[in-house]
Amino acid sequence: MQIMVNDQLLQLSSPLTLQQLLKEINQPDKGVALAVNRQIISRNRWSAHTLLEGDEITLIKATAGG
């Protein structure tokens, strides 16, 4: 299946949860936020939320700023 993560196309061999996706793309789960199709998914639902074909994921992290 195909999904988009921050406008980048990703091929997944099997459906993943958000928690598994972070691991798959080597991203830490600390200091980040996730939205699926612009709907923010809170951290406590990451392991239960399974991604669907064509989902657009936004992965945000904290960075330097004033």
Binding site: V5, N6, Q8, I25, Q27, V32, A33, T58, L59, I60, K61, A62, T63, A64, G65, G66
Partner: peptide
């Protein structure tokens, strides 16, 4: 203070 940004999947070390 901190800002937010989209994670760059290819290059994010900061």
């Amino acid at each position: 203070t901190m800002a937010l940004k989209r994670v760059d999947l290819n290059n994010d070390q900061d």
